[in-house]
Nucleic acid binder design. Structure first.
Length: 123
RNA sequence: CGAGAUAACCGGACGGUUGCGGCUGCGCUUAGCGCAGACGAGGAAAGUCCGAACACCACAGGACAGAAUGCCGGCUAACUACCGGUGGAGGCGACUCCAAGGAAAGUGCAACAGAAAUAUACCGCCGCAUCUGCGGUAAGGGUGGAAAGGCGAGGUAAAAGCUCACACGGCUUUGCGGUAACGCAGGGCGCUAUGUAAACCCCAUUCGGUGCAAGAUUGAAGGGAUAUGGGUUGUCCGCUCCCCUUCCGCAUCGCUUGAACCUUACGGUAACGUAAGGUCGAGACAGAUAACCGUCCAAUGACAGAAUUCGGCUUACAGGUUAUUCUCACCAA
RNA sequence: GCGCCCGUGGGAUAAUGGAUAGACCGUCGGCCUCCGGAGCCGGAGAUAUGGGUUCGAUUCCCGUCGGGCGUA
């Protein structure tokens, strides 16, 4: 789970990202992205996806994916929105689809920088 | 052994790695970070159907409108909930279900059928007159959900509670039992009054309004001002006079110790109450329980996620457990 | 969170407690035409769902399910 300070929290910033960001879509997911100085992530799971239990489950799984890939992401503001039908997917499926979107958007750092980060963490 | 009934309970367990929420303590530093600790969704958290607490507004008091409830007694902070009883309905039974006052205060409605639907005479029966009328009649026919209490006997021109009987019904009254609803027994009245109040209505009881996005604190800006104005209410009478507006999102409080929960004892048929001892068990604000792995079981794990807080109701739910419990059927003694 | 409203064929709608739930568009079949359109005739298809009150419920009452609106 991410700390509170790395989450998108204001309604205004959500609307800003959705209005000005570039959009990458997939069958069950949509990603909006705006480049910026700090890394912020927000999730939108609407009422049409399911009831409260299913919505929370989807949010948790998406957060888990972001946490695993946190160090590899470029700085900016991310908004993931889920679409109906996503509740039938497993965790691995959601993860695959999110990684597909991120690579499609080219938001992973280059291999060199990844190696550097690994070296830094090792040191 | 089979088929049920009732009541109560559980709602995957354990361990490891990474990670989240507020709290407490310590440290660093300055408002965040690090470390440690214990804690961290439900029986329905759901639907928002009732009832309250709490907050604000209004409030001398009242009327009308409106809404809810409706056998009796109890319980409760309160209730349309709950408990016990009465009456009725269903079931072989254990048992379950019931918005269960008033139709003789008044109004409305009752399609079709039927002669006639709250008043009548179509067929029929009888009498008189006679070829088509008058009168009597509610036994019989047929229609309907409902047709002038039921069956039998007497009676009659034919009939009719016209008269009589009933371990039939109704109304009324007396006695007994019960706090009461009501029940049981006896007497009297021949007995006129269809259904619908979940149609309007009548009677009795209860209800001021809005809801934590209530509201409070701090701060900023602006406006009106002693009455032909402002505030408040569903309406009216009325009451009141430093009050109103704006500040999108972001502050702090409200925010969790409460009509709380657990155990024991006592009272009560029970709901529940009293006393003693013990416990602290989420408090977010884009909103915390996840990801992966291993073992076990009833085995891809149901229904489902707190948002001010309680008491109920309703609805959803894989599977399982308990009861020297109860009923029916079969078999055996 | 709180408050309120609505569900009738595929679509949009009507119905005073009493009809076989009505008419329109669409759909299907037939007639007409060389073929199609238009026109004519005929048919199928519905009271969201579960109970209750009533002799009788689309209508009245209660509970579910689904949809919508307001507030901020």
């Amino acid at each position: 789970m991410l700390k509170k300070c790395f989450r998108l929290r204001k309604r205004g910033s959500f609307t800003y990202v959705r209005a000005h960001g570039t959009r990458y879509s997939e069958k069950y997911l949509t990603l909006h992205f705006v480049r910026g100085n700090c890394k912020l992530v927000g999730f939108i799971v609407s009422n049409k996806v399911g009831k409260a239990v299913k919505r929370n489950l989807v949010k948790r799984r998406m957060r888990a994916v972001v946490r695993e890939e946190w160090n590899n992401l470029v700085r900016g503001q991310y908004v993931f929105s889920a679409r109906p039908g996503i509740t039938d997917l497993s965790y691995a499926d959601i993860k695959g689809r999110m990684l597909f979107l991120l690579t499609k958007a080219g938001l992973f750092k280059t291999e060199n920088s990844r190696l550097n980060i690994k070296n830094d963490s090792q040191e």
